[in-house]
Design a protein around this nucleic acid. Sequence first.
RNA 1: GCUUCGAUAGCUCAGCCUGGUAGAGCGUUACCUUGGUAAGGUAAAGGUCGCGGGUUCGGAUCCCGCUCGAAGCUCCA
Length: 619
Amino acid sequence: MRILHLHCDHVEFTPTKKEIPAAEDIAPETVRVEEVLAAFIAVEKGDDDTVASKAMFQIGNVMERLGCTRLLLYPYAHLSADLAPARIALDILTAMQQQSKYSETYRSAFGWTKSYAIHVKGHPLAEGLKIVRSGGKDGSESDALSAESKIVSYWYIMTPDGTMTPLKDYNFTKNQSLEVLARYESAKKRGGDDRPPHVALMKRLAIADYEPASDQGNMRFYPNGRLIKSLIERYVTKSVREYGGFEVETPIMYDSDHPSMIKYFNRFPARQYSIDSEGRQLFLRFAACFGQFLIAHDFQMSYKNLPYKLYELTRYSFRREQSGELAGLRRLRAFTMPDCHAFCANMSQAISELDVRFNLSKDVLHEMGIEQDRYEVAVRLTEDFYNENKDVVLNLVRQHNKPILVEMWKERFFYFVLKWEFNYIDSVGRATSLSTDQIDVENGDHFGIEFVDSNNKPQNPIILHNSPSGAIERVIYALLENASHKLKKGEKPTFPLWLCPTQVRIVPVHDDTIPFATKLASYMNRRMVRTDIDERNESLGKRVREAEKEWIPYIIVVGSKEAANGLDGELSVRDRRGGSIINITIEQLISDIREEVRGKPWAMLNQPGLLSKRPQIMV
RNA sequence: GCUUCGAUAGCUCAGCCUGGUAGAGCGUUACCUUGGUAAGGUAAAGGUCGCGGGUUCGGAUCCCGCUCGAAGCUCCA
């Protein structure tokens, strides 16, 4: 912020016309002030509330020295070439006005073209320039964010029989991972300092890696990783479509001055990627909410249409987390987020929909190979909501059939009255939220979303925000952590069969058997079983070993015996999960695999079918 | 953002303390090998030791600054 302060005999100004869309709504009247310190102010990028207080402190010092008691705050863009977005500038100017200790504090209208006359006193201290920068550890934390840290929470554990026990009185001996979550969230105590195991695995399996040429937290996905990610994306989308969500696609960037965005944007200004485009400041979405709300705003809805559900899988949502907070696939700056909003006519409809989505989320995680023993449920809600709807929480804990963590707030601070999350607990003691749903009582009004009720009166819907799986990258993180959990227990790590980049690896014993191997592989691929062939000039033992290192569930070694028997004969199949070599026909193997992956999306191999044709991606 | 640690071959890392010809394993390439269920053999290619400065006859190595990365902290709408 730059402040040009002038000690004046008098200042007179008249707003003549609105200059920008965000201009204040005021009646344009001429104002004349005598014996005043006129502070011409340009609010710059990165300025925040701390700048407002610092500026007022400095202005106070000047006022005292001059013996002046009248202050005029005059927004003046021409002092800087690096201005803050209009809405933020207005917020800060308003904050300065409110913080002023002078009873006669004037502020000229923001966003208006003004004519003005000024008479500056002729003494040495009459003119000065101050430059104020934001301080503190995170320069542009908003008011909302700092207020958030002051929220008072009450923590409980609720058991399936409905008992609520204050956290400090609960005995965790039988629920160690819930204790991890509880400590993690309430005491803000974190786990060990081991490197997260999934990072090494994501590299070794050629799934994903850091991209040094991008910003931190923006990953590259190799063919194997892209295949896995794409299958998960398709599966989640399919599940939400079957549940009744209708898929839309919305822009990834929004105008930070758009009236509906202001509140969202200002809440976390330091956490956005922003882009300048022809003088407008755009920010990259950090969720799918705006896009869907802006669509719903333009719908003509009746109560008969509700509940109505919109869905988008955002690739990507962006959150510019602090650099030190990023961690492998667990915490990113660009991530893929399925987000399904249900517009509900009233609270009872919202509550019954919440229940459906809780089960949807549970099923989705289960089908992806993330079971209930790997995650813990947290429910956060306001005291009022709890008192009026105790059975809602009770119902959730019964469905989960394990104790859950409850965080209760005296008053509503966020836009929701209730939120639940499934928190994955990893092997190094970290909790990471996957699925979530919220009951939002604010944004229907805020985004002007309306439906007409049975009395022909417009109403704002209650909105549920559900991500049935959480970020797709996090699902992969959880699958890799599951695998590393198995490793620690001395078991063989695996992916769910439908997600394996290669489901069957064929290893020909001898060059003569390559034609048969090729015939076999192409038959299986046509039958939707991802099959490849390792015909490299390597020893049999080495090729089997490498297939095992890739976690390939089935390895078929074909020699002259199999080639002679043809497609009808029995094959010698190494079953990784069963831990033995089985003799089975091709038809039986295909039908076993097809049975196991039934209902899941399928894609063909995303690599050359012959290993000799593949570049080495990772060691 | 703060603290700590790190940056040497495509990858994983040794060498640095104690300055003097740039190392290993894996991978890649070629040849040999034709092997029946977790590593067959031989050889070759491959490096501006992150960038800049300083000390020194001489710096991957010691000193200073910078850049980038990771972990932890704070944080996670």
